[in-house]
């Protein structure tokens, strides 16, 4: 089980308190009605799925309830850092 640092609670907590929210920093369409089919495909379905350094969202569902972002290595599963939502990608 992962030990995850919540940047809001500022505590290392076990993974079962968190829900993974998928790839981070995917911008919602600013003008959805102007989006083409390929753009929707990109937004909804295409994912980086990298082997190595990965930006992802987590939500501290059984804690503060807030979303934050993390950088994790997908081979070792080791967290590099976590940071608050809205901050630029690290």
């Amino acid at each position: 089980m992962l030990l995850i640092h919540c940047p809001y609670c500022e505590e290392d907590r076990p993974e079962v308190e968190f829900a993974n929210g998928g790839q981070a920093h995917i911008a919602r369409p600013a003008d959805p009605s102007a989006y083409s089919d390929p753009q929707w495909e990109e937004f909804l379905y295409i994912r980086r799925n990298p082997r190595g350094r990965h930006h992802e969202r987590w939500r501290h569902v059984h804690g503060c309830g807030r979303f934050f972002n993390a950088v994790r290595d997908t081979v070792s599963d080791r967290f590099e850092t976590t940071y608050k939502a809205g901050e630029p990608a690290r």
Partner: peptide, 9 residues
């Protein structure tokens, strides 16, 4: 979470 570790929790 996505992972290539070939191990789970």
């Amino acid at each position: 979470y996505i992972s290539y570790s070939q191990r789970g929790a």
